[in-house]
């Protein structure tokens, strides 16, 4: 159920105000069907979330097309024209580079970068925010952006690192497939970070855009020898703090 400024919102009216089919419509439908109450201070705030979710899904598709490579943190690499690799395998924007250019380069020039799935999720979120906020606001907020996994994360994206139980997975959510009995030889297969694409598929870095059963099958191939404990999709999601991010857009 959706409320705007304390008033229950009508789905049909909201759908009429939505330009595109796909992600925005799907998000609205899921929010309105939910037993959970989703409160928005204004129509603009709701619109911002819908647009950002749409751009997150678009950014995941763009990153997939851009050719970003999979590599473990120990062997990660980046384009030195925009980024410096840190000792823990993360990337930090060069002092003389604009954060917006550095993020855009990851989408255009993906083969110059190799990293793990958690970093790819952050790149997706940054890519979407760049599209929604525009270059100037993005550079103001994310100058010196640092990319690694959920251990070290920019304040503005902090909530994407925190998995909360949810019964309403939404397009653009970060989800996690857990592989509890992973083979010691392949710790990178301990799980897979993915973006919920809203149509029953998930984007995961290194595995592409796939259905849940396919991702689970891939993870299961990397279990301990003889293990019968299957990988599974966790019933939780990491979500950006849309309310706070909406303020950046103003």
């Amino acid at each position: 159920m959706i409320t705007i400024n304390g008033q229950s919102a009508n789905l049909d009216a909201l759908l009429r105000g939505t330009n595109s089919a796909g992600v925005e419509t799907e998000t609205l439908s899921r929010l309105s069907r939910s037993f959970t109450q989703y409160d928005y201070d204004s129509m603009e705030e709701l619109r911002f979330e819908l647009v950002l979710r749409r751009e997150i899904v678009a950014a995941a598709n763009a990153l997939l097309r851009g050719g970003l490579q999979f590599e473990t943190f120990r062997n990660s690499y980046c384009n030195p024209a925009y980024w410096s690799r840190t000792q823990d395998g993360g990337f930090v924007v060069n002092r003389n580079a604009r954060a917006s250019d550095a993020i855009a380069d990851m989408f255009k020039n993906g083969r110059a970068y190799g990293t793990e799935c958690a970093t790819a999720m952050q790149i997706v979120y940054y890519g979407a925010l760049l599209k929604v906020l525009g270059r100037d606001a993005f550079d103001r907020e994310f100058a010196g952006a640092y990319l690694m996994n959920w251990h070290r994360i920019e304040r503005a994206l902090r909530e994407t690192g925190l998995m909360r139980p949810t019964s309403d997975p939404l397009p653009g959510d970060r989800r996690y497939f857990m592989n509890p009995d992973v083979n010691t030889e392949t710790p990178e297969w301990q799980g897979e970070n993915v973006i919920d694409m809203g149509d029953g598929s998930y984007y995961g870095h290194g595995i592409g855009r796939r259905r849940d059963a396919d991702i689970i099958a891939d993870l299961n191939k990397n279990r301990r020898l003889g293990s019968h404990t299957s990988a599974y999709l966790m019933p939780s999601a990491g979500r950006p703090n849309f309310k706070r991010l909406a303020q950046l857009a103003n």
Partner: peptide, 12 residues
């Protein structure tokens, strides 16, 4: 019990 969560999955 072991949850299986790690820094690959979560900040906390």
């Amino acid at each position: 019990y072991l949850t299986g969560e790690g820094f690959q999955a979560s900040s906390a």
